[in-house]
Design a protein around this nucleic acid. Sequence first.
DNA 1: TTGACATATTCCCATATGGGTATATAAAGT
DNA 2: ACTTTATATACCCATATGGGAATATGTCAA
Lengths: 127, 127
Amino acid sequence: MARAATTTDVFNAIAEPRRRDIIGALVDGKERAVGDVVRIVRMPQPAVSKHLGVLRRVGVVTVVKRGQHRMYRLNAAELKPVHDWVKTFEKYWTHQISRIKERAEQKAAEAIGQAHGAAPASGRHED
Amino acid sequence: MARAATTTDVFNAIAEPRRRDIIGALVDGKERAVGDVVRIVRMPQPAVSKHLGVLRRVGVVTVVKRGQHRMYRLNAAELKPVHDWVKTFEKYWTHQISRIKERAEQKAAEAIGQAHGAAPASGRHED
DNA sequence: TTGACATATTCCCATATGGGTATATAAAGT
DNA sequence: ACTTTATATACCCATATGGGAATATGTCAA
């Protein structure tokens, strides 16, 4: 019972910065050989291969063998779930970007400590 | 040099399904006490506290102490980076949903194995 | 066949993680 | 002061991860 396999779902796949970099190297939608990706992202080849492997298992990229090369290509559709998920919260920042302000306030509150009389639920942030 | 701290960025924070569940429990934007969240997501309290901790560190949720309760609240703005990132790929599926088909094809190809004559770069998927 | 080139795989290792359980801390009530 | 209620922490543990290095595998060229 340790963490769930990261390599199993898109959210986890894109959680890795490097992996996002690799995706970035394929963002134009064109296929690219591992070597090209390696050059672009400047990572040791084995690392790239591994990451590409994860991305492939999740379906974020696809491969085609061509001669001694393996052409990888972004399969953006697999990212849709993520998009759909975050999209749910879009309204929050689209509507009021000032939510950050609020966060600041709260951080301050936290810092101040237990001014436990803070504010009754009924009078606080129930916009 | 083992993996980067997951608890450090939003992408990683939301990579955990449980964490997304918790976020879901706060999706209405209203503040909620840990206990409430616990009841909603049906997870042991310590677990919830930990996850909330991660989410808080990343800024996805904020806390306010009120009496013996800690009211957590979603700070959706922090999810914007994720949204912005995936949004980049939006066009792909918005435009042609049939990309899945292609993936299927490739999988088939893979399965078939090394029919290495697969297809010359010039005639394949350079749409 | 032998050799160069492209990738994937295997090992090994340090470490972050999440879960579970028990416990500390804090606030409220009596 | 003592007890309940609410949360956070501390521990311990199994395990997934990612990195690095070395090596296997596969492919094309002589």
